[in-house]
Amino acid sequence: MPTSNPRQVPPQTVHVPLAERSYDISIGTGNLAQVGKWITSLRSVTHAVLISDTNVAAHYEKPVHQALEAEGIRVTSLVVPAGEPSKSVATAQKLWEAALEDRVDRKSIVVALGGGVIGDLAGFIAATMTRGLDFFQIPTTLLAQVDSSVGGKVGINLPAAKNIVGCFWQPKGVLIDTAVLETLPRREYLSGLAEVVKYGVILDEPFFDYLEANVQPLLDREPAALQKIIARSCELKAQVVAEDERETTGLRAILNYGHTYCHALETVAGYGEFLHGEAVSVGMLCASRLGEKLGVFHAPSTQRQHALLSALSLPVDTPQLDEAAILAAMQRDKKVEHGKLRFIVPLKIGKVELMADIDSEVAMSAWREGHSA
């Protein structure tokens, strides 16, 4: 289990205000050791279903398991193969059956210990088992810490569409330990930085400026820089979720900047070929070029995004994939309405807008222009 870093910074709490579904995000360094006390401070627990994957379990399953047992909690530990393919109907069924076999009941809780895949999958298990169990998020990747663990979106994939089966199910709490990022492979860590850049583009130009000025501390995983970007990303997402929890007003859709292209890329390339953040990086630049084509965004701002993403060692070029398949995948995107493509398009750094009825050829030209020379 990670220990406190000598460069530790004071812990922070970010509140997600959702009336009776409100919860706190506890952000610190070395605080994973307190997970048992943290959960029992939030509610009475006798049984926890701890869900992780093969990569995360090797580092953190045993200490988290022991920390929960130390608080008198019976633990059912379930480990799935690492990677996007585990967000499937087949894996969900195995987890349902395993939890049932170990006497899950309506007072049990689910603890998601892992990255975005585990958060989505375990949250879906929590939302559906006995028509709803409380669950807690312990995100162990940067991407999950800044994005997928916050906001209550849970679900699984079908072969033809990512995240198409799911629901909104808010956690009871999120515990973020920046020290766990020390064991995160470099590629996974960099992938998470794409979602951080996204928050700057959609909501906060000064935050985007901060990222541009702090590339090296971010690449070096300096604790102060990590806590800053994680806390600010969580604050920004919490603001959006509080105003549009279930995507009824359209505001929450701005969190999907770049994701229409991103999800199409992930689907056509095959789940796992691109990490989610890598696909987000490519997708944001496609959406940025789309904004230029629609006359609402300027090329220098696209170049700023390109330069920052490149400096953070993220992919910026669209791969050579079947364009008909990419378009077909975009047409299955959750933002499509009445068969019409809709995209989150930037107006300036710090402000984006949902635009409807985008011509498919214009959308594909923004994709095509991203091919490397």
Rank of each mutant, 00 (worst) to 15 (best):
R7Q: 15
Y261Q: 10
G115E: 11
A194F: 02
A287I: 00
N163D: 12
Q66R: 10
P10E: 12
T249V: 01
M1K: 01
L236F: 11
V296D: 11
Q216T: 13
S233G: 13
Q145A: 13
G291E: 12
V362F: 10
V316G: 02
T183S: 15
V80D: 06
G250A: 09
H298A: 08
V174L: 12
N214S: 08
L309K: 01
F124Q: 09
L133C: 06
N31W: 07
T178H: 09
I164M: 13
L285P: 01
K94G: 15
T302L: 11
P159R: 03
A328L: 00
V241I: 13
D204R: 04
Q305S: 10
A99Q: 10
V110N: 12
V56R: 05
G114I: 09
V362Y: 13
T3C: 02
P223D: 15
G192A: 08
G123H: 10
R186P: 00
G72C: 07
L308N: 02
A160T: 08
G83L: 06
S44H: 07
F343Q: 01
E273I: 04
G370H: 05
L181I: 05
G83E: 10
L341G: 10
T318P: 00
G152W: 02
P206H: 08
R368D: 09
E273S: 03
L218E: 03
K335C: 04
Y189L: 00
